[in-house]
Design a protein around this nucleic acid. Structure first.
Lengths: 235, 235
DNA sequence: CGATTAATTGATACTTCTCAAATCCTGTGG
DNA sequence: CCACAGGATTTGAGAAGTATCAATTAATCG
């Protein structure tokens, strides 16, 4: 029983505005619509596997995903998240390398697959889009540098505070005021780069300090400035 | 007293082969040669400052540099190195952001400055070069992901072993068999993401184990497989 | 409504950092 | 070329931060 899908035509896709494709002209969009295919991933499914070579990219229409690498002991390290409008697999496709991370959806997700030939076709014939992709990769590279510095220099407590703010910025809050994403304590630990127990203890400290409110996996941020101070986040 | 510089013409630059410009056609190269300028940086000088906006990129002709960010306590975190043929500042230029890192030369360095207008001119008119730049950024992004995972999951000892192998791969060895780069213990610590004293103690352990040989800042790698085993490096 | 997984808490061990003091280099100016 | 000053390196001791292991309780999913 798959959900009713509105016919996903790139030309009038409302999510396109947030994607790398926001500036494509109508003929290119029509062409892309022709060759793209739609896919559905049930919560927990893997979209792409670390080590494989992608034959194209996914553009997320609805849903969320985490990008992670497996470290030495098989422990996963979450590198970043992807949500509506984000492209999946473009790094490996453009660099011609294997996927450096796996992508797993955090909730039921609809995504469009654009084959590699089409991607390269657009890139080669559209310098504006090409620049857009470059911009995206370079921006991510800057973010990665920031993450590297944080992991190397900040304490677990500081990193956790920062991660909470990152989740707030990335996913925002739902109607109840909770972070609009459901993560296990282990997944949070895999973002912070620490043990699950450490995350639990520190979250509970933040709760005692009334920086956050906890109800199971529901997290409500109560005091952003305080978390920014704890996390030494200045931006 | 500046050294005699061979007239650095991009068309017959022997370092071009290793650079992103390796595939440019001769007319583009001639044009680039026209607008580029040559610069010299004395050991320790800063090529570009974190937070500023670059008006172009440097292409390193001879010399070495480190890219680093300043973390919370003003401690520097080394993100990567640049050597002959490498481009400096392209990330910020292409993403249209501020520089996310400073670049400081590790030894006397000659570099050519290519202004932003020329860079974008080439990118817009040369999809092959454009792809080349994309490839470079995407490759770096993959490396960054690996570094993130290592910082989050490996011990200091493991990371140090890996850093030594990285230096070996990046800079190779000189005629004496020592790593062809001179770094202070503090700089090594700023790569590993640890305290200087920890690096000193662990280097001395590696020496006792005869994995390396130490003479001041001269480091000779004696046992690569052992270091790979310690650092859990499989590639 | 079970069965399984996730979350929590406590106790303990270990890695790593910090501070302090001594020694050794390195680059510089005479 | 040598001596010197300032920085870099080394070593030790102690403190702090985190990880690990074990045992319970809670939550979630079919």
């Amino acid at each position: 029983m798959t959900k009713d899908l509105p016919s996903l035509n790139c030309s009038n896709c409302v999510k396109r505005e947030f994607s790398a494709f926001h500036d494509l002209d109508s003929s290119t969009l029509a062409e892309m619509s022709d060759v793209k295919t739609c896919a559905f991933f049930k919560k927990g499914q893997i979209m792409m596997h670390e080590g494989s070579r992608p034959n194209g990219v996914y553009c997320i229409h609805t849903g969320k995903a985490k990008l992670f690498r497996l470290g030495t002991e098989g422990k996963e390290q979450i590198l970043r998240f992807a949500k509506e409008g984000d492209l999946i697999g473009y790094r490996a496709l453009l660099s011609g390398e294997q996927l450096s991370a796996s992508i797993q959806v955090l909730e039921d997700t609809h995504a469009c697959f654009i084959p590699r030939s089409e991607m390269f076709n657009i890139i080669e014939n559209n310098s504006k889009f090409s620049l857009e992709m470059m911009k995206m990769a370079c921006h991510e590279l800057g973010e990665a540098g920031r993450l590297i510095t944080n992991l190397a220099q900040k304490t677990v407590r500081e990193r956790l505070a920062e991660v909470l703010l990152l989740l707030n910025k990335t996913f925002g809050v739902n109607e109840e005021g909770n972070l609009d994403v459901s993560l296990t304590r282990e997944e949070i630990a895999n973002m912070v780069g620490t043990a699950t127990e450490s995350v639990i203890r520190l979250l509970s400290e933040f709760k005692d300090d009334e920086y956050i409110e906890l109800k199971g996996r529901k997290i409500k941020i109560l005091n952003i400035p305080a978390l920014a101070r704890v996390g030494q986040v200045y931006d």
